[in-house]
């Protein structure tokens, strides 16, 4: 590891995530949202298999695209980005709030299910990622299940092309296309020239999400790989 990479690793934690995750999503919210509308199959299957009247959480709900999947259940979505929560709030009959995954405003051991899609990989230390999984699992009633979905390191066929040999802690660019028109519209978040933002990700290795679930005191019910992502369905452990 080079010196500057070491310094970078040492500085990781809450403040690092504020700069390299939270503030980025806040700025790219509506552009990001316009590219996120198609639900991924594993997540759709999980949500559609829930009995009518189930009550659950979408932790890190982003623009709320999963709120629309099953109208017979009630989901309280939450996200760190106020701008994304505003977009997510349009999905009836569900509800949303601004909250941090490590300080969730919900009863413990209560909910029928939880999902947390593409969220845990934004926490920048192993301890904080395990704490995030623990926080998700803690909301579940006995028998309740959580679906956790994270970006994979093993994605050689994707346009990013990462493989096992690559560094797991990466900065991923988000390019917001500029538009001449935006120059004259001060309300638009679209810049007049292309603007690149970088978000921090921890890319998960095979088996790592299962490890985090167990380290958080949970039990893996089912796990797998779906299009550049690792996922696990987990329950609280016996204790």
């Amino acid at each position: 590891m080079a010196k500057n990479e070491q310094d970078e690793a040492l500085s990781r934690g809450e403040g690092y995530e504020e700069e390299h995750v939270h503030s980025v999503y806040e700025q790219i919210a509506s552009h990001f949202s316009s590219t996120r509308y198609k639900p991924w199959p594993i997540i759709e299957r999980f949500l559609k298999s829930l009995p009518a009247g189930s009550i659950g959480l979408d932790i890190g709900c982003g623009n709320g695209k999963y709120l629309a999947v099953n109208p017979d259940i009630f989901i309280v979505g939450s996200d760190r980005s106020h701008n994304l929560v505003k977009i997510a709030s349009q999905h009836q009959p569900h509800a949303v709030a601004v909250a941090d995954i490590l300080d969730l405003p919900h009863q413990v051991h209560f909910f029928d299910f939880a999902i947390s899609i593409a969220v845990v990989h934004h926490l920048s230390t192993p301890e904080r990622r395990i704490e995030a999984v623990r926080s998700i699992l803690q909301t579940l009633k006995p028998g309740g299940q959580a679906l956790v979905y994270v970006w994979a390191l093993e994605q050689e066929s994707s346009r990013r092309g990462w493989s096992e040999k690559d560094d797991q802690d990466v900065m991923v660019p988000w390019v917001m296309k500029g538009s001449k028109k935006a120059k004259n519209d001060s309300n638009s978040e679209t810049p007049s020239t292309d603007k690149t933002f970088h978000r921090y990700y921890h890319l998960y290795r095979k088996g790592e999400i299962e490890h985090d679930v167990e380290a958080a005191g949970g039990k893996v019910v089912e796990a797998g790989y779906e299009k550049d992502n690792w996922w696990a369905i987990a329950m609280r452990g016996e204790t």
């Binding site: 009550i55 309280v76 509800a95 941090d100 300080d103 009863q107 413990v108 209560f110």
Partner: peptide, 24 residues
């Protein structure tokens, strides 16, 4: 925020979760 939501919210501070006075 619809009132139904408040049935599923409590204080975000960890030490409050075990205190029944934090809900609703």
């Amino acid at each position: 925020m619809k009132l139904l939501t408040l049935n599923f919210l409590t204080c975000a501070i960890k030490t409050c979760k075990s205190n029944p006075a934090s809900f609703p």
